[in-house]
Amino acid sequence: MKTMQKRAQKTRRIAAGFVAAATAGAVLGTMAPAAAASAGEVPSSSVAARAAEVVEKATGTADLTKLDGRSGSGHTGEGKVTVTAPETAAGDVRLDAPNADVSLGLPETKGTAGVAAGAGTVVYPDAAPSTDIAVQPTSDGAARTLVTLKDRNAPTTHDFSLKLPEGTRLTEDGENGFLITKSHGEGAGKSGGEGEDTEILGAIDAPWAKDANGKAVPTRYRLDGDKLTQTVDVTADTAFPVVADPKVSLGWSIYLRFSKKEVKDMAKTSVYHFAAVATVMACAKIPNAVAAAGCGAALTAQAGSLRGQMQDAAKANQCVEWKVSYVGVITNWKRYKC
């Protein structure tokens, strides 16, 4: 079993979503192509406004944070995360959180200056041929980086360079995205190694893309070293503009994972003994004393349903993951192939 944490220190995880893939909304209406901006040139307010309008129709504006220049801060309940868009599209998006910083290089061919526009979007119109780039800090401590393919002349493949905290690596999350992880213990550095506890510092959500009619457009990632490439598969029927997004959410949670054997062992216990067994196998692994104590209380209260979930997973020969809040409440669970 592994202890998996979101954000900040060893009991925290910078959750969800850093490079590509995020929440989506419909992109309605085809916008006229924005005028190209030469390297370093500040786009006109009308060009920036049009670029922001397309993006914000795709993402919505309810979760956007107020911008201070090119920066915006979100809160996760236990800390502030500051997202800063670069001065030009040639720079990096920075996410500064307690004890963990990450950055993402934007895909571009020109150093177009970033302009704050719309309800809270920094845009880089025509940063690449027929392509606008945008960055959105959100109120929940996230960074969205968006690519708008304005017409069929736009490139459909975009590279994002990653700068991760020292000692971390990307691992697949089983849902077409990646986790930014750091291993501790005897098995550190060996994927799935015995005795390994895994700290999750961040996550790259599964990619998404939407066309002008709100229809999902197939898209995927390829990881090559510190470069993440997103490809959008447009067809003759695709309505432009198409918007695709990478996002980083910051939230502190603890992720507990159970192997097939652990799942089967816990599924065999009676409902009366389940909480005691699970406390030893799960809660004792949480390095934060408050969360460990809360986990025990939560197990007692949820023993019946959690045991039933373990039994379902055991029958399917699957592993189980619990999401535990920083005070020990089990807020979610899932089973997965392993």
Score class of each variant (00 low, 15 high):
Arg144Gln: 07
Val217Asn: 07
Thr3Ile: 11
Pro287Gly: 11
Leu95Phe: 08
Ala206His: 01
Thr279Trp: 00
Val55Trp: 03
Lys163Ala: 15
Asp126Ser: 15
Leu106Ile: 14
Ala275Asp: 13
Ala34Gln: 10
Phe160Thr: 10
Tyr336Phe: 15
Thr84Phe: 05
Lys261His: 03
Gly177Asn: 04
Gly72His: 02
Ile200Trp: 08
Arg152Lys: 13
Ala35His: 00
Ile286Asn: 02
Lys285His: 12
Lys182Asn: 03
Val217Met: 04
Phe178Asp: 05
Trp322Asp: 09
Ile330Ser: 09
Ala206Gln: 01
Gly105Cys: 08
Ala216Ser: 14
Ala244Phe: 06
Thr30Gly: 14
Lys182Gly: 06
Trp208Phe: 10
Arg169Thr: 14
Leu104Ala: 14
Gly114Ile: 09
Thr82Pro: 08
Ala127Ser: 14
Lys285Cys: 03
Ser73Lys: 07
Gly251His: 00
Gln309Gly: 15
Ala267Trp: 10
Gln230Tyr: 00
Ala316Cys: 11
Pro137Gly: 02
Ala154His: 07
Thr279Tyr: 00
Glu186Gln: 14
Ala127Glu: 11
Ala8Glu: 12
Ala289Arg: 10
Ala119Ile: 02
Ala128Gln: 13
Thr148Trp: 03
Lys66Thr: 15
Ser139Asn: 15
Thr219Gln: 04
Thr219Ile: 02
Pro98Leu: 09
Tyr336Val: 07
Asp312Arg: 15
Gly195Tyr: 05
Thr121Cys: 02
Lys190Asp: 12
Ala24Met: 04
Ala276His: 06
Ala188Asp: 05
Val83Thr: 10
Ser45Thr: 12
Ser46Glu: 14
Gly296Pro: 05
Leu228Glu: 08
Ile180Glu: 10
Ala212Pro: 01
Asp101Leu: 04
Pro86Ser: 13
Thr109Met: 04
